[in-house]
Simulated assay, not measured.
Amino acid sequence: MKNLKSIAVALVAFATITVSAQTKKIDAAKSSINWLATKVTGKHNGTVNFKDGAIVFKGKKVTGGTFTVDMTSLTATDLTGEYQGKLNGHLKSEDFFGTEKNPTAVLVFKKIAVKSANVYTVTADLTIKGKTNPVTFDLTTTADSATTTFNVDRTKYDIRYGSKSFFESIGDKAISDEFELTVALKF
């Protein structure tokens, strides 16, 4: 009877153990963000670096995440030399991301739904230039990485330069309102 009581106590103790959250910090140097922006007459692509970030897991399930992006690292990779310098300078200016006043962008997971095994639909708050708007994307995870690709509407962050939505007569100088981000996280 004493052994039965001990087993019952052990089972109750085991049953009340909860899975605690585990925060996996990203390796900012090995993680990447690639951007693609299109315009009527072509496109530009490049990179921007993470400052820091982490995904929170409860067991194997994603339950949270927060990331800070170093906007001063923004660079075009499809150009070199003088043209790259000009485009980088313009992207960092107030016409676009205003990196002198806004050196970081932040993404915070707000809602996470399981889509399938290791795939989550995430709604997050994205803050660029001090403006916060929701973005939704699918995030695929492994034990040591996570990936996603999603679009951002720049006009929601007061980045209107060259937008046909605001300058109707811009013609073939128009720049698409949305740009694409392809993100690879390494833990």
Rank of each mutant, 00 (worst) to 15 (best):
T141V: 15
T41E: 09
T141D: 02
M71F: 08
T66H: 13
T63L: 04
G59I: 07
H90D: 11
I26P: 09
G85N: 15
P134F: 07
S145I: 04
V40W: 12
T18M: 11
V56R: 03
T23G: 00
K61A: 14
D144M: 01
K156W: 01
V152T: 04
K39W: 08
A184E: 12
E180K: 15
D144H: 10
A15I: 06
F50R: 07
D70E: 12
S145R: 10
A29W: 02
G98C: 01
N3G: 01
L87A: 08
I33H: 12
K92L: 08
S73A: 05
V119S: 11
I33K: 12
T18C: 10
T75F: 01
K58M: 07
N118F: 00
N49D: 15
G162W: 04
F97V: 00
M71L: 12
K111D: 14
K2Y: 11
F150H: 08
G98K: 12
V62Y: 07
V108Q: 12
T16R: 00
I128C: 03
K86P: 00
T104L: 05
V9W: 12
K111Y: 01
V56D: 14
A184V: 13
E82I: 04
T75E: 15
L91V: 01
D70V: 04
G171K: 13
Y157P: 10
G65L: 05
S6Q: 10
S165L: 14
R160V: 10
V56L: 05
T121M: 04
F150P: 05
T155Q: 09
G46P: 06
R154W: 09
D153I: 05
F67C: 06
I159Q: 04
A117W: 00
A21E: 13
Y83M: 13
L74K: 02
D172C: 02
T66R: 12
G85C: 04
V135W: 06
S73H: 11
N102M: 10
D78M: 03
V40L: 08
I159N: 03
T75Q: 14
S176N: 15
T127D: 06
N3W: 06
V12K: 03
A124Q: 05
E100M: 03
A10L: 15
Q22K: 13
K156H: 04
I7T: 11
F167H: 08
N34F: 03
A174Y: 12
T99A: 03
N88M: 07
A28I: 12
G130V: 06
L79G: 06
I33E: 12
M1E: 12
K111N: 14
D70G: 06
M71Y: 09
S32W: 03
